[in-house]
Computed example of a mutant assay.
Amino acid sequence: MTMQWTGERLIPKLLKPMNGMLLEHLARYYFAAPYATGRVLDIACGTGYGCHMVVKERKREVTELIGVDLDEETVRYATREYHHQKVTYMQGDATDPRLPDRLGTFDTILSFETIEHVQDDRAFMDNLRRMLKPGGTLVLSSPFGRGRGMPTSEPFHVHQFTPEQFGELFDGFAEVELYVQRGVTFEQKQREGLRYFIGVAVCVK
């Protein structure tokens, strides 16, 4: 594989260590790693670097990690380049209603920069709820924008939620903490004047 991206799938080995986009992506996994425990799902895992990071950071706490991506070539790359005995990569559609029956339930679910690519975000969230065990933790991120159904400047994004719409995705969870990611930092209060930033939610079912 010679491209730096497959769609928006990052390949760290082909990027300079100080690449800003790479650092942002790595920061999300480092932010989420302390929440990872038991059986973990990384939905739309991309090339697998994040799965590998989390399982190495949490080698005592994580018993199994499943990385799912829509693209078969990307799954093959992840299996080859980011192998770990506790990690299994597989092809799957995050909105497929059969996915929960296929994968079972999880103590932790990670979903980074995925929901903005999905036409039916409600089906996507329904699958995540079905796959998350009671008391389990979901960590999900997505860039903010003009709102559901509105066009974006990003060619691979179906839409980008407003901060209000993003928060509403997690109605029904027992606990919800919302953060804003700016570069590699995470804040709980949105600053005025930001034109582009990423929402991060940590939710307990």
Rank of each mutant, 00 (worst) to 15 (best):
R148T: 13
R148E: 12
G149E: 15
M150I: 11
M150Y: 11
M150Q: 12
M150F: 13
P151T: 04
P151Y: 05
T152K: 15
T152W: 14
T152S: 15
T152Q: 13
S153R: 07
E154A: 11
E154N: 11
P155F: 05
P155A: 06
H157W: 04
V158Q: 12
V158A: 03
Q160T: 11
Q160A: 11
F161P: 07
F161R: 08
T162A: 08
T162F: 04
T162Y: 02
T162P: 02
P163H: 01
P163I: 06
P163Q: 05
P163E: 02
P163N: 01
E164H: 05
Q165T: 04
Q165K: 09
Q165L: 00
Q165A: 14
F166Y: 11
F166Q: 00
G167L: 06
G167N: 01
L169T: 06
L169K: 10
F170Q: 08
F170S: 06
F170M: 06
F170C: 14
D171M: 13
G172F: 08
G172T: 00
E175W: 02
E175C: 05
E175V: 01
E175N: 03
E175Q: 11
V176C: 03
V176L: 01
V176P: 00
E177K: 03
E177V: 00
L178R: 09
Y179W: 14
V180S: 05
V180H: 11
Q181G: 06
Q181V: 02
R182D: 02
R182C: 12
G183D: 05
G183M: 05
V184D: 12
V184H: 09
V184A: 13
T185R: 07
